[in-house]
Write a protein that binds this DNA or RNA. Structure first.
Lengths: 350, 350
DNA sequence: AAAGATCGGTGTATCGTTAAATCAAAAGGG
DNA sequence: CCCTTTTGATTTAACGATACACCGATCTTT
């Protein structure tokens, strides 16, 4: 007796094939596989066996259409730099998101776009995502406009790093305590006796960075110290931050301390100071933010603020799925704590 | 006169709504929007106007089902570490991929999985991607098995970092010239007079890293120098590499040079050497690989190899789309050049 | 023993789009 | 002026799954 045994059929196996082969209706197969409806154990086993034998896999596309659910979350990173994953703080959040979503059978579609491309690709209309996560940069006004546009999609929206929401926006914000972290940095710097300080910020507005700076500034203001001097860099890259710091050093007297907007900028500034002949931390102190892995391996070890970036991503995913399932989009704000991490790029408080 | 003007209808607008409103058949609407079939300019304009007025957006889900095309590429990063985006070399490739795909209206679904999860989530059966990109780690045998499994999906497959393919695998490989880069590093080190060298490699097998090492080894072999001593680190993280180097330094005589498997490991090794009291590059020389942005901002500036990671990702995306469109899956290998980048962590060749 | 409840399951319609076949009317050809 | 071709558009039937309504048997209940 010949057994062709052709389980790797060329045409894809559909639910009807299984139904015919098992001698039941397509509906029953569906019910068995989804554990719905009333099916006897016997036929269920039989159906499962046939499914196994034919190697049937339900069509995701069909299910998506029928149930109008995509099991897909869109993630939008709006930033000028096309190299949108260069910041480890962002990748860590992405990782957290992906891992959580994968574990819950959702997929993440990642897209980095320039603000100017927001309307064309930012709304993920070619995707029909079940929800959106966004990290926005740019001026407050522009960001608010983005947020409003995102709301028109009628899917849950979670914003990361954003510090406050327009009243009408029914989004969730997931962020860390940037202000608090910045304040601790400021207090620490003040305690070392520094008074004349710079803050290194990129040209682009990041709400989180502004909050860090505001935190530090509030500490300085309370102490009656002189105002922080903002040094603008073109962007957050090492190169640009390095150049900006070097130029600023050449232009006038050096500061007691430089507060970097993040670790990258701080490390670049550190290098610039060293190259300019200053000793760290004796002459100039440096602080970073976010404690990305390298902070310990530069010399001297960087004083920074440890953030739970991975957890931020996970919480965002969790919130998003919860919103999608419940259909409730109430305004909400989730803030995770940060931890100040003193290193050797600042002096011990005296 | 009251104009309710309710363009943001609650129920989604389908092609039928447009057809009814425009007084034509659904098919005509479809044809207008896709520029197919025979349609007079007049009706086309009219239909477009109605589409605009009703705010109609074609349903991606329906189109996906009908055309059995998903406009989606799956990217698989198989690695033990759940923090699969911590390597900037990988994120740069991801960025290149995403940007190219987005520009061509494809989406990337990213997933980092442990080797043990390969069967459950690795095949993207819950996605039905039009193609797959994979970065695999692990033993050769295991990787080959993964490659074979990926082939069963009957979609184009592009592998990154892989150095050679099993004969039956009709995949494309996109990689950089790791061997050549490693060889240049080896030659450079030899030229400085170093003879007794270590190679820092993670426990996990990365084909690319092995190739770099083989390149360096070949230079040493030809020069008749003593064999490279492999120092295994548990993984590629700074912390583990640092500890491994420090331990190795304590256990015996220091090497003339340490060849890092990548920049991260090299920087960690550098710090370990400094902390152990060695001067760089006078006593110990260090080299990295991949030139991720920080290489210039550590002290001393790291000698490394510049790679076109972004371009690797773009080429991968391009190849994938080409394969999908043509339906031709012939074995292919694309190799991009690398550029040796001498720094101050090695001495000048004498 | 009639009436209802439970069990196990089937048929039909539908999600929104597009390929293929078809068709009526206008245009062209001899 | 009849016959073919072209033009512009329609009708039908999928793509593969699931919601919903319904149905014929058993099994209870009184």
């Amino acid at each position: 007796m010949k057994t062709p045994k052709k389980p790797a059929a060329d045409r894809t196996v559909t639910i009807k094939d299984v139904a015919r082969e098992a001698g039941v209706s397509a509906m029953s197969v569906s019910n068995v596989l989804n554990g719905r409806g009333r099916i006897s154990e016997a036929t269920a086993d039989h159906v499962r066996a046939v499914v196994e034998r034919l190697g049937y896999r339900p069509s995701v596309a069909a299910r998506r259409l029928r149930l109008s659910q995509q099991w897909t979350i869109g993630m939008l990173i709006v930033v000028e730099d096309p190299d949108f994953l260069s910041d480890p703080f962002i990748t860590a959040q992405v990782t957290g998101l992906t891992n959580y979503l994968t574990a819950h059978s959702y997929s993440l579609i990642l897209r980095g776009i320039k603000p100017s491309d927001f309307r064309t690709t930012g709304l993920f209309q070619d995707i029909e995502a079940d929800g959106m996560v966004a990290i926005l940069s740019g001026e407050q006004e522009q960001r608010e406009w983005f947020i409003q546009e995102l709301s028109t999609l009628r899917v849950p929206v979670v914003l990361m790093q954003e510090q406050r929401l327009p009243d009408e926006a029914d989004c969730a914000i997931i962020r860390q305590d940037d202000f608090g972290g910045g304040r601790q940095v400021g207090e620490h710097i003040l305690a070392t006796g520094a008074r004349n300080c710079w803050v290194l910020l990129p040209q682009v507005e990041w709400a989180a960075m502004r909050a860090r700076m505001a935190g530090a500034a509030s500490a300085f203001a309370e102490a009656g110290a002189s105002e922080l001097k903002i040094v603008r860099c073109g962007d957050e890259s090492f190169e640009v931050s390095y150049d900006a710091t070097l130029q600023a050093l050449r232009r006038g007297p050096p500061p007691d301390a430089i507060i970097g907007g993040n670790d990258q900028m701080a490390i670049a500034a550190m290098k610039a100071c060293l190259d300019a002949g200053f000793r760290i931390p004796e002459q100039v102190q440096i602080t970073g933010f976010n404690a990305f892995e390298i902070w310990r391996y530069v010399d001297p070890v960087l004083t920074t603020v440890r953030s739970a970036a991975h957890a931020l991503g996970e919480r965002a995913a969790e919130e998003l799925i919860a919103r999608f399932k419940s259909g409730q989009f109430r305004q909400r704000e989730i803030v995770l704590p940060v931890e100040f991490q003193p290193g050797n790029s600042t002096r011990s408080p005296s």
